[in-house]
Structure formats: C-alpha cells, structure tokens
C-alpha cells in the first residue's frame, strides 16, 4: 500500500498552483506540494527540501535530524552488540 519515495525539490515551477519539480535518483517529475505548505511555510521556502513523494504529491517533509537519529540508534545497536560479543569472547564463553 502506498508506495512513497524520498526526493528533493529542485524547482518551484508554478507557485500559484503549488507545483514543483522533484528529483529522485537523477530523474525529475512534477509534483504538487499543497500538503507541505501553509502560511508559516510558504511555497518558496520548499526549494531544496527533501520530501516524500506519493502519486505525484509531496506528502511529507523529511525530518533530516530524525533520519540521522534513527540511523545513529541503529549504529549504536550494532556497537553494543560488538562489545557484548567481545566481552563474551574474552570471557571464554
């Protein structure tokens, strides 16, 4: 259900109709950005944003800090395990 893919907004093509161009792996496609703009976050500010694209609509702005935190948590998980493994190894178990 609901294929979505991260892309970066590289152009605001029609500010009045809230249309932008998004780039995904070097491929470009027009998208509607009505769901990620409001009075506080106007269309123009979206340039350069990473967004999640679904059926030609930017549905969410990607929180870059959260993404980094998720990856960090996963890395730490690996490190903790490596330490545990080392401890078990040195304990002869």
């Amino acid at each position: 259900m609901c294929l979505g893919i991260p892309g970066r907004i590289v152009e605001i093509s029609d500010a009045a109709n809230k249309l932008a161009t998004v780039e995904i792996g070097g491929v470009r496609r027009p998208v509607n950005i009505a769901c990620i703009v409001d009075e506080e976050y106007p269309v123009e500010r979206c340039l350069g944003d990473w967004v999640l694209v679904h059926v030609g609509f930017a549905m969410s702005r990607i929180d870059e800090e959260q993404a980094a935190r998720t990856l960090e948590a996963l890395t730490e998980l690996g490190e903790v395990q490596a330490e545990l493994a080392a401890m078990r190894g040195s304990g002869g178990g």
Binding site: G4, A34, C35, I36, V37, D38, L52, M59, S60, I62, D63, E64, Q66, A67, R69, T70
Partner: peptide
C-alpha cells in the same frame, strides 16, 4: 513510531482538510 523522519504524530493537516 519508528518512522519519525516522515510521520509527525499529528498527521498532515492540509491533507486531512482536503
């Protein structure tokens, strides 16, 4: 919520309004 880089707990206001 594991997917917090995309999912805001409140959802998407503009989308829900439409």
């Amino acid at each position: 919520n594991q997917y917090d880089r995309i999912v805001d707990g409140e959802g998407n206001r503009q989308a829900l309004e439409a």
